[in-house]
Simulated scan of single mutants.
Amino acid sequence: MTSDETSQGRAARLRRRWDREAGGYDRAFAAAERRMFPDVRHRLCARAEGRTLEVAVGTGLNLEHYPRAVTAGAPGGLVGVEWSPGMLDVARRRAARLGLDRDVDLRLGDAQALDLPDDAFDTVVCTFSLCAIADHRRALAEMTRVLRPGGRLLLADHVASSVWPLRALQALADLVSVPLAGEHFGRRPLRWVTEQGLAVEEHERTRAGVIEQVVARLPAGAPVRG
């Protein structure tokens, strides 16, 4: 079996796992969210402006936090891409409950290979998802590619702690969580954001440095990074 076949098989297994967990994901995640980052979604998504893309939209937990100017913009003003059909189904039902089903475009897609044109969005959002994307550097390169010069990238995730004993525990957790569920606890996407040529405007770490928020802008006239 080739490495590509092995990678494809692992991706298919992980997608089936997310599909199975989609129905109970919100309940399982709620307690951790209330304790660790109760207001992060609202604070970050409120910064979205213009045509907005959310990468790895999941079950649509961010939908209610976007400004109405974003969700009620031109058709496709808010586009959400999700890898798991099961998670996407939940997001679409949430959009319908919120009365947003006609305003947002929720579609299947891979964060590592976005089927979207260059320079298409004023804002790109990704929350608590880079930790579970196999090649997060490639995903960040794609987010930069579709971002218009002058546009902003809004990120939030759990990352490697700034406290070394906790960081050591995260490294141990990775030994189990990465092969089993594709979940990484020791990543620091900020370094790859700056490598993509974006200028960090705001950066905040909380909860022993485990929760990180980044607001970065693609400079006007910046070359597209691939």
Rank of each mutant, 00 (worst) to 15 (best):
A111I: 09
L63S: 08
D26G: 03
S177P: 00
A171E: 06
L190R: 13
V193D: 06
W192D: 15
G50A: 05
L61S: 08
G80P: 02
D157R: 03
A141D: 06
P179C: 07
A139K: 11
P38D: 08
T2M: 07
G77D: 02
A11E: 14
M1T: 14
G186E: 10
T6C: 02
Q112L: 12
Q170I: 13
V159S: 04
I133N: 04
P189W: 14
S162V: 15
E183A: 12
D103V: 01
A173K: 10
A171L: 07
L100S: 04
V79F: 09
A32M: 08
A113M: 08
W18E: 13
A69T: 15
W164F: 07
A199M: 13
S129G: 15
V214K: 10
R13Y: 07
T123F: 01
G50I: 10
F128W: 06
A111K: 05
V81M: 09
V104I: 10
M1W: 10
P38G: 11
A72H: 10
G99T: 05
R137I: 02
D157Y: 06
E195G: 05
D157T: 03
I211S: 00
S161K: 01
A69I: 06
H136V: 04
P165K: 14
D105W: 11
L153W: 04
S129P: 02
V210S: 00
D118S: 15
G197L: 07
A132P: 00
E202Y: 13
R10V: 14
G58K: 01
D119K: 01
A72E: 12
A30S: 06
E212S: 03
P117W: 10
V70A: 09
A95F: 02
T144L: 12
R191T: 09
P189C: 11
P179D: 02
R47E: 14
G151S: 01
A208Y: 14
L44Q: 03
T71A: 03
E21A: 07
G109I: 11
F185Q: 06
G109E: 05
V193N: 04
R51W: 08
L98I: 09
P149E: 07
A120T: 10
S161P: 00
A91P: 00
W164Q: 01
D105S: 13
R205Y: 09
R51K: 13
R102Y: 01
L78V: 10
G80W: 08
L106C: 00
V176Y: 14
D122C: 09
V200Q: 11
V200D: 06
D39A: 11
G76S: 09
G221E: 12
D4F: 09
E202A: 15
R17K: 10
P117F: 13
D89C: 07
R41T: 10
L154I: 00
L88Y: 09
A72F: 04
P189Y: 11
H65N: 12
T71S: 12
G77W: 07
A168D: 02
G226A: 14
D118R: 12
T52G: 00
L198P: 05
S3Y: 12
L198F: 07
A134I: 01
